[in-house]
Design a protein around this nucleic acid. Structure first.
Lengths: 138, 138
DNA sequence: GCAACTCCTTTCATCATTCAAGTAAATCAA
DNA sequence: TTGATTTACTTGAATGATGAAAGGAGTTGC
């Protein structure tokens, strides 16, 4: 992991579909040497995969919820199972220190779905709901 | 946006570097027809870009903080400027309803950097810190 | 000095992409 | 019904990217 590797990561974060030749031009290496370095970063587990940034509003998921979870019992499995059953809505489930036990990030198509999800959720845990109004990704 | 487009998005979320030919095999189209559909999804703004999943622990950013921000004045610009000056640490700044005004997601190399960041932050806003212990991405 | 290693380049065969041309089906207006 | 238009796809050929093999240059340790 040297400065060149960091520039590879930076460039691939911007556009992971650029060719190894193009990426090589950015970091002043041949496409082949670049591909070898990228392969090494994959093998090291630094690059975990290649994905897309999608506009969730445009695929019908305008509601973005941040839900602080307060587990009532020490037995978290029913809650975790509930998440598994509703994974279509769940983006992240962060186990946190501080306020609450988990911070749950979800996406919903409508308030009806959000409401139904919260109704189900309340069988297992207490929660506090925050809705994202605007997102500023760096 | 039909079922085929949704399958394209699903496949590209798994691996955005697959070839259009490979993707075409998944959705039973030629590489050319697939590339045309992907281009359309880009033009529609559904696909916003191509990026990588990186292991932030392995690039020296093991500390994952969720910071609830309570602005003391109605003038948020000093806080937003502070974020801009420390954008290396900032992943997301969500404007939220509910508890607090913003939910700030950050990454830090060490507790020293986190501490320095919080010292700076406290000049502009009140905050409540949560540290992510474990992350469960769906 | 020499062997082993790392990191890179060059070359070439193979494979993917892209453009142009053409087909087939659906929509629409007369 | 007919003909024009549009949409979505396929095919084929040229261009460009990838990946494997061979080799060069610099570094390290003995």
């Amino acid at each position: 992991m040297d400065a060149t590797d960091r520039r590879i990561i930076e460039a691939l974060q911007q556009n992971s579909r650029m060719t190894m030749k193009e990426l090589g031009e950015v970091i002043h290496l041949t496409g082949q040497a670049t591909a070898t370095r990228v392969k090494k970063l994959e093998d090291l587990g630094v690059i975990e995969g290649y994905t897309i940034r999608i506009n969730e509003e445009r695929i019908g998921l305008p509601i973005h919820a941040m839900i602080t979870i307060y587990t009532t019992s020490t037995f978290h499995d029913p809650y975790l199972l509930f998440l598994k059953e509703h994974r279509q809505f769940v983006r992240h489930n962060y186990k946190v220190s501080g306020d609450g036990c988990y911070l749950l990030e979800c996406r919903f198509p409508t308030n009806q779905e959000l409401n139904a999800f919260l109704d189900g959720l309340s069988k297992y845990v207490n929660y506090k709901l925050s809705l994202v109004i605007h997102q500023n990704t760096q």
